Simulated scan of single mutants.
Amino acid sequence: MTTAPLTPFLRLMDRVAPLLVRRSARARVREPRAVDRSLTLVVREVRPEAEDVVSLRLEAPDSGALPPWRPGAHLDLDLPSGRRRQYSLCGDPADRTCYRIAVRRIADGEGGSREMHALRPGATLRTQGPRNAFPLALTGVPCLFVAGGIGITPVLPMVRAAAAAGADWRLVYTGRSRATLPFLGELEAVDGARTRVTVRTDDTDGVPDAEELLAGTQAGSVYLCGPPAMISGVREAFAGTGATGLHFERFSTPPVIDGAPFEVRLGPGGAVLSVPADRSALSVIAEARPGTAYSCRQGFCGTCRLRVLDGEVRHHGSEAARRTDDAMLICVSRAAEAGGRLTLDV
C-alpha cells in the first residue's frame, strides 16, 4: 500500500499536535491557587449596644469597598495579643463601606473579648474572610430564627433578609434581661417585627426550655445561635417539631460527647500529655503550650490543624479544614482507640 506525501500544512500539524496534547495535559493537572482572603481593617467606631456589649465598625484603610458577604458570614480576627477570634457580621450586606461586628465582654473568659473591648478608633486589625459556615437559604418555606443573647449577631441580617424577601418568618430572642440584649431597636424597625418577633427574658419570663422556643414550629427551617445549653436542648427537641431543617452556630466550645481518653506526644521524644474523655486535645495542649493556635474550636476553620507523625486518628470536623488524612484538627479529632497515643508535629 502506498501513502500520499504529507502537505506542508499536515507536516506542520504533525509536529505541533503532540506539543498541544502535552500542554493540555499539564493544564488539566495544574494545582489551584489559594485565594488570599486576608484584609487589614481599621476600627472607625466603637459603640455600646447593651450591657457588656459593644459594636465595632471596621473599614478599609483607604475607605474603599470591602468584599461582599451574605447573612451568616463571619470574620476571623487576629488580635494584637496573637489570639484569633471569630465574630459574625451583623451590619447591612448592601453597605460595602464597612463591616460591623458585636462583642460581649466575658469577664472570666480567655481574654479575647476583653481585648476587643479595649480597642479604640484608629486601631488596625488583620482579618481573614468573610467566610460563611452558617448560610441562610430562603427557599419559600417558613423560617424560625432563635437567638440567645449575643447569638443575635448572625441572625439579625437573616431576619432583615427574610423580611425584605417577603418570607414567612418568626424570631424568638432570649436573654437574661432586656438590658443585656443588643440591637432591640433595630429589630423593632424590621418590617413585620411587631407580630413576628418574640422577646423573652429570664428575669420576667423565666428560662425557656427547648419546647417553648420551638412552640408552633410545624414546617420549614430553624436557624439557631446561642449558648451550648440552648443548642443542645433545641437539637434534642427538634425531631418533634415537623420542621425540615435545623441550622445552628455556636459561640463556645461544643461539649465532648462519647469521648475516650488518649495521649498525645508533642513531637518525637517530646512530652506526653493525657487527654481525658471529656476534654479535647486542643484544651490539653493549649494548657501546656499557651501559644497554641486555634480559632473556631468546632472543626471547620483549620487553624489548629497539626500533622500526625505516628498513631491512628478518629477524624472529626470538615474535610476541607483537615485537607489530608495525615493531619488532625486537635479541637475535635481524637485517637482512634481508647488509650491510644498520637505523636504530633509541634
Rank of each mutant, 00 (worst) to 15 (best):
W69A: 03
G91D: 02
R96M: 08
T97S: 13
H315I: 01
R170S: 14
T343K: 04
L75H: 03
T253Q: 14
T174W: 00
R70E: 12
R15N: 10
V275E: 06
R178W: 03
P182S: 10
A60S: 15
L10V: 13
R265A: 02
Y87H: 10
T180I: 14
D203G: 04
R104D: 10
L58I: 07
L181Y: 04
Q298I: 04
A286I: 10
A163Q: 07
D168L: 07
M328W: 01
H117N: 09
C301F: 02
W169H: 08
A193E: 01
L329R: 00
A147T: 00
L282V: 11
L56P: 00
T139V: 12
M158V: 02
L246G: 06
A338Q: 12
V35Q: 15
M328R: 04
I150E: 03
P130K: 06
C301M: 11
S333V: 00
R194C: 09
T217A: 12
D78C: 11
G226R: 03
T303M: 12
R114T: 09
L214P: 00
D310N: 15
D14P: 09
G317W: 00
G291S: 13
G311H: 07
R44N: 13
P71G: 07
E186T: 07
C143Q: 10
T97K: 01
L342F: 05
D92T: 08
C143M: 15
A210C: 08
G148F: 03
S232W: 08
V284R: 09
A161G: 07
V190L: 06
G122M: 10
P227W: 08
P8D: 05
D36N: 14
I152W: 00
V275N: 05
A281N: 06
R28V: 10
H316N: 11
T217P: 00
Y294V: 11
R341P: 08
L6C: 06
G270R: 13
I101R: 00
L89P: 08
L41E: 05
R22C: 10
D62H: 14
Y294S: 06
E186M: 00
R305F: 12
L75W: 09
V53P: 01
G269W: 05
C304H: 01
V172G: 00
D95Y: 05
D108S: 14
D52H: 08
R57D: 12
I152V: 12
T198Y: 00
H74G: 09
A73W: 03
L125R: 09
G269S: 12
A137V: 15
A260N: 08
G129A: 06
L184F: 10
G175N: 01
W169Y: 15
V155N: 04
F262H: 02
T292A: 15
C143W: 07
M158R: 06
S318E: 10
L39N: 01
G245D: 13
D326H: 11
P261V: 08
T97E: 06
L56C: 03
L56D: 04
D345A: 02
G112K: 02
E31H: 09
L144A: 03
F9L: 11
P8N: 10
A219V: 12
